[in-house]
Every structure is written in C-alpha cells, then in structure tokens.
C-alpha cells in the first residue's frame, strides 16, 4: 500500500489536533465583547464582603441547629493561641475571622462565607499537635481569602443566593447553601491554592508549613473508617502530593518556627 494512504491518515490526525487546539483557544481569538458574552454567567455574579458576612451568619444559624458548640476553656485557649498567631497577619484582611469548635467525631472543618470557620472536635482529637490544627485553619483561611467559598455557592446556587441575602435569608436556600458547604468539595486547583495561601500564612505566623504535610501524613497512615471520614478524604484526594508540596514550600533562610505552647495532650483529653 502506498505511503500516500498513510499520509491521508496523518492529515486526519493532524487536522483533528489542530481543530482541537483551535477550539480550545477560541476565547483568546474572539473579540473581547464576544468572549465576555460566552463566559459562564456565574462569573458575572459576585458578593460584597458585607453580603458574604450576612450570608455566613444565616448559614451559621442554620448549622448551629444541627451542631452543638463545644464550650471548653482548655480547647478555647488552645484555639485562641493559634488565632493570636494569625491575628497580626490577617488583620489586614477584609474578613473578620471567627473560629468555633463543635462537638462532632468527624475529622472535618467547615468554612462559611465571610470568615466563620467551624472546627469539628474530631479533627482536634485527631491532630497530633496544635501546629497541625493551625495548618488546617490556615488552609481554611486560604479558602476564604481566595473567595472559594462564595464562588462555590454562587456557582451552585447562583442568583437565588443573591436574592436570598437581599430578602433576609430564605430558609430553604440557606439550608441548601449549608448542605453545599458541608459537602466540602473543592476543585483540586482550589485546594492547591488554599494550601499555598495557608502555608504563606503559617510561615508569617512562625509555624513551619510542613505541619500541613504532617497532618496529611497522619491521615494517610491511619486506618480510618472511610464511611465516617469519606467526605474529608474525598475532598483531599491527593494527600501524598500535598505532603511533598508542604515539605518543599520555600521558607526564608532566617525562618525559625516558634512552637505553640498549648499542652496538646490535655486539649485532646478535655474534648
């Protein structure tokens, strides 16, 4: 069979790849106004920080019906110590952070719009050091700073969510928003982005960023009950890569981590 026949095959394959590349880059070639029209509608939606805070409050009220706050001075002071470390750095943030601990065995943390972060007591019991909890908290702060929470809600619930804030919080929509946040699913790139922001925060707070990797290592090593902790594991599908990322995170040459002083054994026992 002649080479011309195989050349036809090559033409087909090259043609396919060229058209694929063309369509993949089409938005770059379109006039800007066209590209804007094609952009996904949800990108056009946005919320002010004040609206985010308002929405966060509505969702928190809804969640606190389901979860019981852990009121324990030992835990509170340990969490407050971590917050104090972050305080000078996050004070420039438009968000006002509020950290709460709820009684629940699940190894989880939920971040609400506007800077409210809910830690589950299961996560505190599971962590081997206050630095690991600080790392998880820094990661969640990363989600807030990168606006992942509100963008996720806008993408999944959309314009109705904006209307809910304006009209004072429709119970059904708020419940849907709370369930969406409980599902805790972010994209891989969002998780990586939150990791990077969180690790920067850790370094600034004189906490070694490898604490995040240590937490994931700990997760990987444990023979976890997957049914109970599936959500957390599903959200963090590439723990090994993230351990490597945290270990190779660039730190300044004069960086000296200052250990957190909380007596972690006591904190865990107090839960």
């Amino acid at each position: 069979m002649s080479k011309r026949v195989w050349f036809d095959f090559l033409k087909l394959a090259v043609g396919f790849v060229l058209i694929w590349v063309l369509f993949s880059n089409l938005p770059d070639y379109l006039p800007e106004s066209w590209a804007e029209r094609i952009a996904i509608e949800t990108n056009d939606l946005t919320l002010s920080v004040q609206d985010e805070e308002k929405l966060g409050e509505y969702i928190m009220e809804n969640l606190l019906d389901e979860f019981q706050l852990l009121e324990n001075p030992t835990t509170d002071s340990a969490i407050q110590e971590i917050v104090n470390r972050f305080e000078p750095i996050i004070s420039n943030s438009p968000y006002e952070y509020n950290i709460m601990v709820v009684k629940h065995d699940q190894i989880n943390a939920i971040t609400l719009p506007g800077g409210n972060i809910i830690l589950f007591s299961g996560l505190i019991e599971f962590a081997e050091s206050p630095e690991e909890v600080a790392a998880v908290l820094a990661h969640e702060i990363g989600h807030v700073e990168e606006r992942h929470i509100v963008n996720k809600l806008l993408a999944e619930i959309g314009l109705t969510l904006v209307m809910t804030i304006v009209t004072g919080g429709d119970a059904t929509i708020i419940h849907t928003a709370a369930s969406t946040l409980l599902s805790n699913v972010f994209s891989r790139s969002q998780e990586a982005e939150a990791d990077q922001t969180g690790m920067k925060l850790l370094v600034q707070a004189q906490i070694h960023p490898k604490a995040l990797g240590s937490f994931f290592n700990h997760l990987n090593e444990q023979d976890l009950d997957y049914n109970e902790n599936l959500e957390w594991m599903m959200t963090h599908p590439h723990n090994s890569n993230r351990v490597e990322e945290s270990e190779s995170f660039p730190i300044p040459s004069d960086f000296k981590p200052i250990p957190l002083e909380a007596n972690w054994t006591r904190v865990r026992q107090a839960i």
């Binding site: 694929w20 993949s24 891989r188």
Partner: peptide, 10 residues
C-alpha cells in the same frame, strides 16, 4: 469536582 479546562471544551 466539575472543574473543566478550555482543552476539554475544545
């Protein structure tokens, strides 16, 4: 988690 790229749509 439903995150798509331009290469997928292309």
């Amino acid at each position: 988690h439903l995150e798509t790229t331009n290469y997928f749509w292309g």
